[in-house]
Design a protein around this nucleic acid. Structure first.
Lengths: 241, 241
DNA sequence: GCGAATTTGTGCGTATGTATT
DNA sequence: TAATACATACGCACAAATTCG
C-alpha cells in the first residue's frame, strides 16, 4: 500500500463501509452479499484485507459466512438473536420469551438526570418510555420500565405510534441499529403493593430486580430498562468469559 | 503446503503446540516468547499461519501481544483475570474480592451423582470439596460449597494439603490449566438458621444463590460452586454479548 | 535527542483445499 | 461433474511501536 495518512487501518475502513451498507438496508437478510473477490476488487483492496473486515463483521454478528455458499446479512429478528439479552429461565429450563405484554403507559419526554446518566444522553434529549407487564405461559412474570433514546433509532422520532410491545433487538434493527452488548445489574427486593397487584403475587414477595442497559454495536446505549421479575422457581443465567 | 491428511487446520495444530508449551510451564509469564519469524521457522509454517495461531492464543487469554515489544504469556494470578468470574459488587461499586476466608471443612471423595452431572465427570471420579465463609471488609459475605475435579488439575492428586483458601483461577493455573469461561445460575432464597448464623444475619434474610460452573479453555468443567451471598446493598453484574 | 535494531501490525498477491449447489 | 464461494496457507514488503546505544 501507499502511505497511510488516515488514522484508521484499511480493513477497519472497509469494515465501516460494509457495516454502513447493512445499516442503511442496502444489503438485507436473504440473498448473499457479493463474494469476497468482487468486493475486494470494488474496494481496491487485497482479498486478505477484505477478509479481515468480514471477520470483524462476523464477530459482531452483522453477517454469517458459510463456506461454499456465501456471506449473509444476519437477521436479528430470529429467536436466537432477539432473546440473547434475556437470561431468565422458568423452572422447566425454558427461556422466558414473553408472548404477551400488557402496556400500562407509553410516551415521549425529555430525559431525566438518571436517564441521561444511564443512556449517556445529553440534557434535553428525547426518550421513549414504556411501562408494561410481561406474561409467560399465562402468568404475569415481570413489570418493566424502559427508556429508549429516540435520537439513536433512525426514523423513530417521526413515528406517530411506536409499538408498545416492541422487543428491543428487532426493534433496533428496524431502525438501522444492531445491538452489540448489554450489562445487567441484579438485586432482589420485596414487591410493593402496586407491583404485587400487577404481578398477582402477595405484597412482600421476593422479586429479582434487573437493571439493564443495551448498547449498539458502535457502543452507544440504546435502551435502559428496569424489570421486576417473579422468578417463581426459575432462575437467571449469567455467562462469563 | 502439501496434502492435508490431518483433520485439523495447520494453524490449529500450531495453536495446540504453543498452548502446550504454556500449560507445561516451558514458557512462563515474564520474558517474551520467541518472535513470530523464529517461531514460524521452527514450526515450518508461514508467518501468516503462525500469526493466526497467536491470534487464537490471544483471544483465549493465553498470551498478550505488544507491538514493538513481543508476545508475553499472561499471568492469571493478576486481579483482573483472577476475579473475572466474580460478579458481585458492594454498595460502593467495589468488586467483592474476598480478603479473608474461614474454612469449615475440606476433603476428597468420590463424586456424587449431582457432581458428576455438573462436572461432566465419570462415576467414581475424585473431587476436592471445600466449604467456607468469605469475608469482605470485615463482614461475612458468602457461604460456599465448592467441588473441584481432582483429575483435571495436574499434580493435585499428589498434594497432601491443598490450600483451603484457594482462588480457582490462579489455583488452576498453578496446575497447568487456564480457565476459559463460566456460567452461573442465580436465584434468591431465605437464609436457613445454619447459614444465617455463619453469615451473622437474621434467619430468613434474603440471599442470592449463585450456582456456578467454571470451565477450562479446552472446555472441561473444573469447579462447581454454590455460593449463598448476602448482597447487603450490593448487586450482581452480568455482561452479555 | 536521535537513529538503528527489534518486534508486532497491516497489506498485497497468489495458490490450493473444501463445502455447497 | 463443474462452477462457485469461503477457508487455509504461503511469502514478501512495509508501517508502527518500542527499546537501546
Amino acid at each position: 500500500m501507499s502511505i497511510n495518512l488516515t488514522r484508521q487501518a484499511l480493513y477497519l475502513q472497509v469494515y465501516d463501509s460494509l457495516a454502513q451498507r447493512i445499516a442503511s438496508g442496502m444489503w438485507k437478510p436473504g440473498p448473499p452479499i457479493p463474494n469476497e473477490v468482487d468486493l475486494a476488487r470494488e474496494f481496491g483492496v487485497s482479498p486478505g484485507t477484505l477478509r479481515k473486515a468480514l471477520d470483524l463483521l462476523e464477530e459482531r454478528r452483522l453477517v454469517e459466512r458459510r463456506q461454499g455458499r456465501g456471506t449473509f446479512v444476519l437477521d436479528h429478528a430470529t429467536e436466537e438473536l432477539t432473546f440473547r439479552f434475556v437470561n431468565v429461565f422458568d423452572a422447566n429450563d425454558e427461556r422466558i420469551v414473553s408472548t404477551q405484554t400488557t402496556v400500562l403507559s407509553q410516551g415521549i419526554g425529555e430525559a431525566t438526570q438518571v436517564e441521561c446518566n444511564q443512556l449517556e444522553a445529553a440534557k434535553g434529549e428525547k426518550v421513549l418510555r414504556t411501562r408494561r407487564v410481561r406474561d409467560h405461559r399465562g402468568r404475569p412474570i415481570s413489570y418493566e420500565e424502559a427508556s429508549i433514546t429516540v435520537g439513536r433509532l433512525s426514523g423513530l422520532e417521526r413515528e406517530p405510534n411506536p409499538p408498545s410491545d416492541y422487543l428491543i433487538v428487532p426493534f433496533a434493527q428496524q431502525h438501522g441499529i444492531r445491538l452489540g452488548r448489554a450489562t445487567e445489574k441484579i438485586t432482589h427486593l420485596s414487591a410493593s403493593s402496586e407491583v404485587a397487584r400487577l404481578l398477582r403475587v402477595k405484597r412482600g414477595t421476593q422479586l429479582l430486580k434487573l437493571d439493564r442497559v443495551v448498547y449498539s454495536i458502535s457502543g452507544e446505549p440504546v435502551e435502559w430498562r428496569i424489570a421486576l421479575c417473579n422468578l417463581a422457581g426459575g432462575y437467571y443465567v449469567a455467562a462469563m468469559r
